[in-house]
């Protein structure tokens, strides 16, 4: 599935290991033995690294399936003797934050209500912006774009308080709409860059032909650019969905306890001082919160990589 998706995002393609050998004919070194010392070192090192990266996920899953008595007795790496799904149920429906004991489900639905509109709004804005910057430059457009990109590096803490004031004046402070607006604003630099680079990479003749045929700004956008840019929409949707879902700072600043997104609620559940610590419930809650970006990541596979590579490496 991955290999059929060809996208003209610039940057070196990460090609399959043996695809080119067939076209190029017999050349290069002789095939190596499977158990050469070099292979042992390479695969050994990669395998060890892979274990390090997988351990936390494994520990999360294993812990969340154990009962508390077993956790107190055993070690965190041992698989559960008796598998129980009770921690998951409890994390979803009963875990307490402060006085509310309706579990993470509330945070989940809050996050959904934040993420979906934020992703749609920010992508809609950024794609039109990128299109304007790529094909309809006007005097000063590059200056604004430069400010936007430089602004992406400014620590959020510098801009948070002015935004609090602006939102308070607009009557949006503490509401989900305010947070959606904030996510749309801070998603703009990277998204605009992504779309601009994509539209610049499209053949200019297309745009010129449409212009000669008399199409205007919006007509070209909706009839020509939009249908051609499905892959980049998917990429930016992946980036935005994981980014907004994982946000913590904006959630904690711009929402109230009953509209807290999932990450904030999770942190409050796990790091609450009162009560007996239920590590299995905590880990189930952590997994539940990580589930959405993980699913997005595993389903999207190579597109995710393309997204971050296109966003990070310029040109």
């Amino acid at each position: 599935m991955d290999k059929s998706l060809t996208m003209p995002i610039s940057g070196p393609a990460i090609s399959g290991s043996n695809g080119s050998r067939l076209q190029a004919g017999p050349q290069g070194k002789r095939p190596r033995k499977v158990l050469s010392p070099r292979n042992i070192i390479v695969y050994g090192a990669l395998g060890l690294a892979a274990i390090y990266y997988l351990i936390p996920l494994y520990v999360m899953v294993v812990t969340s399936l154990k009962g508390m008595p077993e956790i107190r007795l055993g070690n965190i790496f041992s698989p559960p003797m008796e598998i129980t799904f009770e921690p998951w149920v409890k994390a979803w429906a009963q875990a307490c934050t402060g006085l509310n004991c309706d579990g993470l489900s509330r945070g989940f639905w809050n996050s959904v209500r934040i993420t979906v509109p934020s992703v749609i709004v920010s992508i809609a804005i950024a794609s039109v912006n990128g299109y304007a910057l790529a094909n309809w430059r006007f005097k000063g457009s590059e200056i604004f774009f430069t400010i936007l990109i430089v602004g992406a590096f400014i620590p959020y803490q510098v801009m948070i308080y002015p935004i609090v004031i602006v939102l308070r004046e607009m009557g949006l402070y503490g509401s989900l709409y305010g947070l959606i607006l904030v996510h749309s604003i801070f998603g703009m630099p990277i998204q605009t860059l992504l779309f601009r680079n994509y539209f610049v990479s499209l053949p200019e003749e297309l745009f010129k032909a449409a212009r000669i045929d008399g199409a205007g700004f919006w007509q070209i956008y909706f009839r020509i650019m939009l249908p051609m840019s499905l892959p980049i929409f998917v990429v930016s949707m992946i980036l935005q969905t994981t980014g907004i879902w994982n946000d913590f700072l904006f959630g904690v600043v711009f929402t109230r306890p009953d509209t807290y997104p999932m990450t904030v609620q999770l942190n409050n559940i796990v790091n609450s001082v009162q009560g007996v610590k239920e590590y299995n419930v905590n880990m189930a809650a952590t997994l539940l919160t990580g589930a959405v970006p993980l699913i997005v990541y595993f389903v999207s596979g190579r597109l995710f990589v393309r997204g971050i590579a296109a966003g990070a490496v310029k040109g």
Binding site: W245, N246, N267, F304, I308
Partner: peptide
């Protein structure tokens, strides 16, 4: 290669909150 890449990159999809809580536990 794809398997290794998937393994090395998946933590990046997770939030810092999830990361912090897992390592707090480990």
């Amino acid at each position: 290669e794809n398997t290794f890449r998937t393994i090395f990159l998946y933590p990046f999809a997770l939030s810092f909150i999830v990361t912090g809580l897992v390592w707090q536990w480990i």
